[in-house]
């Protein structure tokens, strides 16, 4: 499902991440690692948000050769999302719905799941950090992507939303075949979310934990 080939990220001449080869089958994966180990950098590379040497494939689709087609397969939720304060939540959701060609039914379900019904009409500048986080997760689940990347999805979420997230992940996995790769310093699984693998970011590379 995901193949990372000779992917190398440099900052100011220093290599911060070098992944010669990493292949993941469809499933749910937990990317672990200490602060600054390159977890977010890797997710940003996979999401097509950050330039790098090498290539990443989702199925057979190359990020470097078919960036638009590739990005149709992958979505992402930032650890510390930032959106324009002068837009309303519903404007962003509508934009994502249009770009990701999502059905109104899916949008309705997600809005209900994340408890955003009353907040969507308000400007994002009026949201709390937790509401912005909920919005970013909602946006990441919009559409029919093959892979959803979640960077610290539990950060700033309240207990209710955090408790429900594994259920949503599992439902997307079972009903739509969506794969997930997430980072989290807290356990996300709650015993009900079957992990297909764990990855470890360390020493400027990422490897599966066997």
């Amino acid at each position: 499902m995901l193949r990372i080939l000779h992917a190398q990220k440099d900052y100011h001449g220093d290599t911060v991440l070098d992944v010669p080869l990493l292949e993941l089958e469809r499933g749910i994966y937990w990317l672990k690692g200490a602060n600054g180990s390159g977890k977010t950098t890797l997710l940003r590379m996979i999401a097509g948000m950050s330039s790098f040497k090498g290539d990443i494939f989702c199925g057979d689709i190359s990020l470097q050769k078919s960036p638009v087609h590739y990005r149709r397969q992958v979505s992402w939720a930032d650890a510390e999302p930032a959106y324009p304060a002068w837009l309303s939540g519903s404007e962003l959701v509508s934009f994502y719905q249009k770009v990701r060609k999502a059905s109104p039914q899916q949008i309705g379900e997600l809005v209900t799941f994340f408890g955003m019904q009353s907040a969507l009409s308000r400007r994002i500048g009026e949201y709390s950090d937790g509401m912005v986080k909920r919005l970013s997760l909602l946006l990441a689940f919009i559409g029919e992507t093959a892979l959803i990347l979640l960077d610290e999805p539990l950060a700033t979420l309240d207990a209710e939303a955090a408790g429900g997230l594994p259920d949503l992940i599992l439902r997307y996995r079972q009903e739509r075949g969506t794969s997930f790769l997430f980072t989290s310093h807290q356990p996300l699984t709650s015993g009900e979310l079957p992990l297909d693998g764990t990855l470890l970011a360390r020493d400027r590379t990422v490897q599966p934990v066997i």
Binding site: V68, Y70, A82, Y83, V99
Partner: peptide, 16 residues
């Protein structure tokens, strides 16, 4: 500057 900080998500969307 604003796009870099607030609209960075656009880079990850499937837009030609």
């Amino acid at each position: 500057e604003m796009e870099e900080s607030r609209l960075a998500f656009y880079r990850g969307l499937p837009v030609s």
